[in-house]
Computed example of a mutant assay.
Amino acid sequence: MPDIKPNSSLLLNDEDVEYAHFKCCGDEDLVFLRCPSCRHIWVDCYECDTWYVDLHDLSNVQHPEPSPAGGHVRCPSCGTAFEDAQYLSKDVVDKYLPTAEQVADAGHGRHLARHLRIRFGPET
């Protein structure tokens, strides 16, 4: 059962990431995120607050800091503050999750879990 539960079945959850590609805290809980403003896609380990902000270079990581005014994190690409401080909560998470097609179209299909790579991205 996924921990991240979008309301739309088209959106990705934490079972849709190829976990073998990512290493951070040893208890990786990963989900794709998509900025509502600029549409940048990255992977979030919500266990240790590590963001893989460049999916072409997985060594490029950030640890998001909430903004001083209200505790909202900012997109690592455009800097726009998320509208919701608890962006992974069930009532708002749909704003911040991409579809598999959006991940593949952005050139990150290889990071989709195997059950999605067969349909949307390369096997490598």
Rank of each mutant, 00 (worst) to 15 (best):
Y96L: 04
L30H: 09
C24Y: 04
H111R: 07
E47D: 10
K23Q: 11
V53S: 15
N13G: 13
D3L: 14
L55C: 06
V61R: 12
E15V: 00
F32C: 10
G109W: 07
Y46T: 08
C25T: 05
L10P: 00
G79I: 06
D94N: 14
G26D: 01
P76I: 01
H56W: 00
G109M: 05
V92K: 06
W51P: 02
Y96F: 12
H40F: 01
Y96G: 02
G107E: 07
V17T: 10
D84K: 09
A106E: 11
P76H: 02
S8V: 05
A104L: 10
K90M: 03
A85N: 08
V93W: 06
D57Q: 11
E65W: 07
W51A: 12
D49R: 06
R34P: 00
L30D: 09
V61D: 03
P6G: 12
T80C: 00
V17I: 13
V73Y: 08
G107H: 10
L88V: 05
V103M: 07
E18G: 01
H115G: 02
N13A: 02
K5R: 12
R74P: 00
N60A: 15
R34N: 09
P2C: 02
H40C: 00
H111G: 02
R117T: 14
E15K: 13
L97W: 10
G121V: 09
S67T: 08
G26S: 02
T124N: 13
R34V: 05
E101V: 11
R74E: 14
Y96N: 01
L10M: 09
I41E: 05
D44T: 01
T99E: 13
T80K: 08
V61L: 02
K23P: 00
E28A: 13
E123L: 15
T99A: 06
D91M: 12
R119D: 12
P122E: 03
P6L: 13
P2H: 03
D14S: 05
D16R: 02
V103C: 13
H72R: 15
F22Q: 05
P36K: 03
P64K: 03
D54I: 03
L97C: 08
G121H: 04
A20Q: 14
L116N: 06
C38K: 03
C78F: 02
I4K: 12
V17C: 10
C25D: 13
V92F: 14
L112M: 07
A113M: 10
P64N: 02
T80V: 14
L10G: 01
H21K: 13
E15G: 09
L12W: 06
E28T: 12
L33N: 11
D3A: 06
H111L: 15
E101S: 13
P2R: 02
E83R: 07
D91T: 14
R110K: 12
D57E: 10
H111C: 03
H21N: 12
I4A: 05
A20S: 15
G70K: 00
C45F: 08
P68M: 07
C78I: 06
V103K: 09
N13T: 04
E15C: 05
